[in-house]
Write a protein that binds this DNA or RNA. Structure first.
Lengths: 225, 225
DNA sequence: GTCATGATTTAGCTATGCCTAAATTAGCAC
DNA sequence: GTGCTAATTTAGGCATAGCTAAATCATGAC
């Protein structure tokens, strides 16, 4: 049987979901193009096909933007569930380190069957989040909303908990691990900001100076003490 | 990075390796076409590309046939190693049954990284065979030669051991499991052949009548008693 | 040796998913 | 409203991997 979706289609759907944000706003072709690393012309072509598909994956309006249809959103969330389950599985069962899981999961997420998805989830005991702290959508696509803020936007002296970290760059991830910037860790931003860095107390250690690129990859939320 | 091989290329290489047999004879386009379920014309086109690649995967002579080059053989064995390691992993760690592993492994074999291959092998303790009894090639491609014969060609009354079973048909596999036709089991062909079936004592049970399609999927070798 | 038959290859087409370059459209300033 | 600029779309091309139909080749029968 021909697969329902291709790798390219999955990647478009994920990108539209991410770029649309929690409000699921319409996403422009240019935004998709730069996020996916392809030309805007390629995006237009793909969106036209996705809109004409049966069932349609997107609602596309020329010169305006694109939104996911119900079917599109369902598939996007399924692929994200695959990705995050795989990351946790590779990390917990196959000795993958924090910075190695993303690349492998990014490839395999398109190819695992529903059966394998279920077996991995069962083996892991239906985990709620991946190793970077990102929530794993339920099988029906449900995903608990979160109040996350970039650490660099968190007010001084107010304690916060790391809820997740960006998994895009393995080098950054290794550095975060070294510094103890793990999901669940308590952090306090100390007075002492400069251009290019902030001062942060991580867990119970001494305040540490974090460069902005690094700190911008750390998402936090309030802690109820 | 663009992958070194595509799924189609992998499938051609595996097919050439299998159809060439232990002597690695040249394989005809027609044989490949019927094995792969595509038209002979498609095979010719693909072989021409595979021969021109750098490094070349095949040695191709028009109107004669095709053989694997060293690079082609290496890749074919790597994919087979992936397939069989995956089968054992799915079976032993993720509660897949005997007849479910093939389909999943057939898809994933093309997409797992060398790192995942290594981690799975380590987790399993470098197993020698998959759940159907097929030998898993070593990382360098080495694969112990076997003296297997189809059960239907084994002489009467001479004890034999099942070395492997065909994994193509899940229905057949379930039937084999029900009958106890598992790799390692001792079998003896009893006098009582008819057209369409043979009589076989499986393990220490009573003689059982096996249909030829089923029995032809059972490979045996001599047992040293 | 010729010829027929079956195997094989060529030629030309389809679809996906990307590209570039050129044309077009939308939205904003004024 | 006009016009500028940036976003968007169209047009035409490339590679992969399949297809059909037509041409060609090779081998065995005679």
């Amino acid at each position: 049987m021909t697969p329902q979706t291709t790798e390219a289609v999955d990647d478009y759907l994920k990108a539209i979901l991410e770029l649309g944000g929690p409000a699921e706003e319409a996403v422009s072709s240019n935004a998709l193009a730069s996020h996916l690393g392809v030309r805007a012309a390629s995006v237009t072509g793909m969106l036209q096909k996705l809109a004409l598909r049966e069932p349609s994956f997107v609602v596309y309006q020329k010169h305006y933007g694109v939104r996911l249809s119900d079917a599109g959103k369902r598939r996007a969330l399924e692929v994200i569930r695959h990705h995050r389950l795989l990351e946790r599985f590779l990390h917990d069962f196959l000795d993958y380190s924090w910075d190695e899981v993303h690349e492998e999961a990014e490839r395999l997420e398109h190819y695992i069957s529903e059966r394998l998805e279920d077996r991995i989830a069962a083996k892991l005991g239906d985990p709620a989040s991946d190793p970077h702290g990102h929530p794993i959508p339920e099988k029906d696509g449900a995903i608990a909303p979160r109040n996350e803020v970039q650490l660099i936007h968190w007010p001084c002296s107010v304690p916060a908990g790391i809820s997740s970290v960006s998994d895009r760059d393995p080098v950054e991830l290794r550095e975060m691990k070294r510094l103890g910037l793990l999901p669940g860790t308590k952090v306090v931003v100390e007075p002492g900001s400069r251009t290019g860095s902030i001062l942060v107390r991580i867990g119970s250690g001494q305040p540490t100076r974090l460069t902005l690129p690094l700190a911008s990859g750390v998402l936090v939320s309030g802690v109820t003490e």
